[in-house]
């Protein structure tokens, strides 16, 4: 069984995230990392691999992005993934979700996969649409936002905690699976894992290798256009009171009443 995990290199949410002059997200000038939500996808892949009785299951991690995006692959390999694929091409810069899903889908086809695993969202764009788009493009069943996963032979069963109901969803491989942060507890790379990762193969591919025309991806090919952005003005400093002798509750209720909430 082959499991391909799609991971993203994102700016650290704790750093000051910003935009480039062309309105794309700055991925180079800000500290970056493997999207924390993709760690759950890597962990789930490792669990499925390790439970596979044939002992021949393999986990490959796939990312697209500039040179430094390789760090996302490296972290996944340190956690225990077997190999990496890095799609790196100048023309990719500024790709939207539609173009991203095109590139990832072609790369998955090239690899071949029984299970394509994704995180529930990226921590920067947080659109949560790539897994559904991949399923659409690959013509595979979509089992997404899984908070619990069981694999039995070629049947995958997941629990999806929706807005109004909890659903149990079933499908057979090959399929696209995405997991939430409820699905598991991602492992930390061990010292052994960190050493072993250095020797694991990482293949670099260009758009040409995937048979994708440059004009189909990147900022120019995007089907939406950012017209402007503005940094949100910092909230004006509020009133802070210290609760002494129970006065805090009085002041709180006064405030809420003045604002017509009570």
């Amino acid at each position: 069984m082959k499991i391909v995990v799609c991971v993203k290199y994102v700016p650290d949410a704790a750093a000051h995230r910003k935009f480039n002059a062309d309105y794309t997200v700055d991925r180079v000038g800000v500290d970056g990392m493997l999207s924390e939500l993709d760690e759950y996808a890597v962990e789930e892949a490792l669990k499925i691999r390790d439970a596979d009785e044939s002992g021949e299951a393999q986990v490959a991690v796939l990312t697209m992005g500039p040179d430094i995006a390789r760090a996302a692959i490296l972290k996944s390999l340190q956690m225990g993934a077997d190999s990496g694929v890095h799609i790196i091409d100048e023309a990719i810069h500024g790709s939207d979700s539609v173009a991203t899903s095109l590139v990832l889908a072609e790369a998955v086809k090239r690899q071949g996969a029984e299970i394509v695993l994704c995180g529930m969202a990226s921590t920067d764009g947080s659109m949560s649409v790539i897994p559904a788009m991949l399923a659409e493009r690959l013509g595979m069943p979509q089992v997404t936002f899984a908070s619990e996963v069981t694999v039995e032979g070629d049947t995958v069963r997941v629990r999806r905690d929706g807005d109004a109901a909890t659903e149990i969803i079933e499908a057979t491989t090959p399929l696209v699976l995405s997991v939430t942060d409820q699905a598991n507890e991602p492992r930390y790379p061990s010292f052994k894992g960190i050493m072993a990762a250095k020797k694991k193969p990482v293949e670099e591919l260009t758009l040409a290798d995937l048979g994708i025309a440059e004009g189909d991806v990147g900022l120019e090919a995007s089907w939406t256009r950012v017209e402007a952005y503005a940094e949100r003005p910092p909230r004006s400093a509020g009133t802070i009171v210290t609760d002494e002798d129970g006065a805090g509750a009085d002041q709180l209720v006064e405030f809420l009443a003045a604002q017509k909430f009570i």
Partner: peptide, 23 residues
Amino acid sequence: SNAEGKEIAGRLSIKTSSGLITD
């Protein structure tokens, strides 16, 4: 803009070759 709504929108975007804006 909930999980299912965004996924429907994502697939619709590809099916109809249309631009998608979420959230």
